[in-house]
Nucleic acid binder design. Sequence first.
DNA 1: AAATTTCGTCATAATTTTGTCACAATAATT
DNA 2: AATTATTGTGACAAAATTATGACGAAATTT
Lengths: 223, 223
Amino acid sequence: MYQINILIVEDEEKLRKLIKKYLFLEGFHVHEASNGIEALKIFDTETIDLVVMDVMMPFKNGYEVSKEIRKTSQVPIIMLTARSAEDDKLQGFDVGIDDYVTKPFSTRELMARIKALLKRTNVTSTNEKMQFGVLSIDTGARRILVDGEDMTFSPKEYDCLMYFVDNANQALSREQILNRVWGFDYFGDDRTVDTVIKRLRKKMGIEGDRIQTVRGVGYRFEV
Amino acid sequence: MYQINILIVEDEEKLRKLIKKYLFLEGFHVHEASNGIEALKIFDTETIDLVVMDVMMPFKNGYEVSKEIRKTSQVPIIMLTARSAEDDKLQGFDVGIDDYVTKPFSTRELMARIKALLKRTNVTSTNEKMQFGVLSIDTGARRILVDGEDMTFSPKEYDCLMYFVDNANQALSREQILNRVWGFDYFGDDRTVDTVIKRLRKKMGIEGDRIQTVRGVGYRFEV
DNA sequence: AAATTTCGTCATAATTTTGTCACAATAATT
DNA sequence: AATTATTGTGACAAAATTATGACGAAATTT
């Protein structure tokens, strides 16, 4: 499946690696640049779906880089800034910054912002058609057929199934599922997952038992 | 469905890519040329519905290229010029330039001019007659029949339906619909889409439920 | 400029989704 | 076999999302 590409532009290596790690854990494909020049080079040669960039950088600051990027692209940009002065923000939005995160920030906050922005700007994975027994999934149509019948899956059910499909034959803990499908900022019962699984299995009909219980851990989608 | 083909002739790559990006977002199929020779070559081999061309270019300037094109075609041409002197404009119209945009211009202005010119010169997506159950669409006449009855669709309704038809069986988010039907520079409520959908469904009669709600996302037109 | 149509927003209704809980069922352990 | 831990499931109410009618502003036509 197609992975979403994110470019991190941050001169402070520790912070860059930290962000990279969390983005990686969220399933993104991550590109790194430690300065603006490098960033623009990568941006020109790679397909980038979203940019996370520090304002303060040697050579070229974040705003200048954004301005360059905006000449050719409407890619979503999130700016990291140490200062939180109002005029700073205004300047940012002028250059077409889509969102703003003030340091220090929690990785959780940053992840939330990134996901929200991706959603807002409609960056999604490509259209695919998949088949598992009598279960057909058409991601472009966001439609699922069971035994040829159109089955309506709720957003949570759909997202959950997608997560399973993307990680077929892997045992996924409830926590992992919660993190990915509900978002890492979700504070709810682990067992919520069980309920969605129950509904999924039911709707999937005969293919329902592709979702195996992994006792003490969570679930596994088998292909 | 047939996409409108636009040829951009501009030697400055950054600007060319920028225009391309915006045209793409508006749903056009875009061809690029960085000079007059290349432009003529593409014009000969591709079907081009409209040309956007810079006057100032190496080798052959915009007027010369236009003259060449006019020998065989009445394709609408928009000229980009840095100078705004009157004689310039006159010379342009002499060679059969249809419209004129002076640099620097906003992408919004250029898009508006392009759309206006397409409308003026009656370039529409080809005349097609489509049938979906009792719903007949004649894009050439911009007319829709429901159950044999002539039904009047408002511009928004019509455009929206066309977007659906062009992307049949695809889940389209409200944002995507807004971007394409209302234009990327529209800042309004997501829910506006719902209202047009409501009106569409009503006018489409029995075929109204070809427009399916995709919960948490938007809508899908099913064929 | 008057009349008509279109369009966006809002309030409210209708519908669907979702999380939790209680209890049943099942598996693991003693 | 009994006990304990874990998972399955139906029910239900709250929350979220979508449908719809109404209304006035804006645009278009007459």
